[in-house]
Design a protein around this nucleic acid. Sequence first.
DNA 1: TATTATTTTTAGTCTCATCTAAAAATAAAC
DNA 2: GTTTATTTTTAGATGAGACTAAAAATAATA
Lengths: 219, 219
Amino acid sequence: MFTLAEENYLKAIFHLEHEIQGGVSTNAIAESMETKPSSVTDMVQKLAEKKMVVYKRYKGAQLTAEGKKVAAYVIRKHRLWEVFLVEKLNFHWDQVHEIAEQLEHIQSEELIIRLDKFLGSPDFDPHGDPIPDKHGNLKRTEKKLLSEVEKNQKGVCVGVKESSPEFLQYLDKKKISIGTKILVLGKEFFDGSMVIQVGEEQFFISIKIAENLYVQTQE
Amino acid sequence: MFTLAEENYLKAIFHLEHEIQGGVSTNAIAESMETKPSSVTDMVQKLAEKKMVVYKRYKGAQLTAEGKKVAAYVIRKHRLWEVFLVEKLNFHWDQVHEIAEQLEHIQSEELIIRLDKFLGSPDFDPHGDPIPDKHGNLKRTEKKLLSEVEKNQKGVCVGVKESSPEFLQYLDKKKISIGTKILVLGKEFFDGSMVIQVGEEQFFISIKIAENLYVQTQE
DNA sequence: TATTATTTTTAGTCTCATCTAAAAATAAAC
DNA sequence: GTTTATTTTTAGATGAGACTAAAAATAATA
């Protein structure tokens, strides 16, 4: 169907389209993929022939509906594998990206159907990013930083922004992991520190913690 | 380290060395890989430069110690993934080969260490083939067909020779799967049929069944 | 042993995905 | 509104890995 390189380009363009609006520039793609602009031009032209992107000289590339679908499916595979690596093989959040980069290119629809079921059809990966469904649709994400949550509001931990070993160890100690419910009991204007409740425990956290933890708030 | 193509060649040569003795011929490799002899010559020369095989013009190729190690590791990965697919994702024996062909090339030592542990460090894959250990050593295998097992001897089912859906369904019905202990109660010279015991059940099987089931006999 | 037949290798070509260097188009600055 | 700067594209080259067709070495046969 698609080569490894083609899939990587589609994925990169998909991500860039969510950051910047309109056509994605050749240079932007080249930078995000650590390759040369001339290589990007070649590949984008190839993808245009395959109707995966709309491309006009000097005007950048835009994914077609079909291109979006393919890209979202690659991302779906990537994120499902990340869940597998963390939940089943006990990898840490920050160790799984490179491996998932490889696993995302395995070709087998059936494999992904079964993997998804095996993992309990998760909606988020270990970094808190939403997993596209089989049709390429993303769950509308209400993901925000814990520091943005108001007093007396609840959130479910869905990932981290920074993932240094020290931070992850801190979270382990405080029994915070994916799916953990967090209630904000108080918020100090002066330094942004918070008092939160996790399970039965109530404790103080600094702004540094709150700014590096993603939660999904109940709507 | 090694490209996908290189790994596949090493694997193919490894398998062929176990079938025929001495150097493996260019033609044999080409046939087993469904490629042309001229392509094989090219690659074998490349592998010889990398000291993975010993190669003399017109004399075939032979794996070096290092080449054997690399090949065995690829096979180890392949078979571990097959166990994962069958045991965890509930694939059938005959559905997993193609997917494992892809998964075996994922590069991450840590992944395989953890996958192995997750699966309980299995010694055999779902087809009854032994899984090389991390050093590339194969468990000396006493694998034989059930039809070769003598009266009053026991064997542990380790795989199937043929794996048609009908046969697998038959085995399911008789509650025979990997790890099932089978005792041969009687053997008919005339047609090779047998009476065997599986669990508490005793029943009759034809030669056709016995010739397609691999067991490991206790030593 | 001379002569076929087979196997294996060489030589040259092709595609994919990348690169460098140079040209062309667009954007920014004076 | 020219001129400079930046971005993007073309042109040509490279390395992997495969192929076809032809040459060379080995094996089989008369």
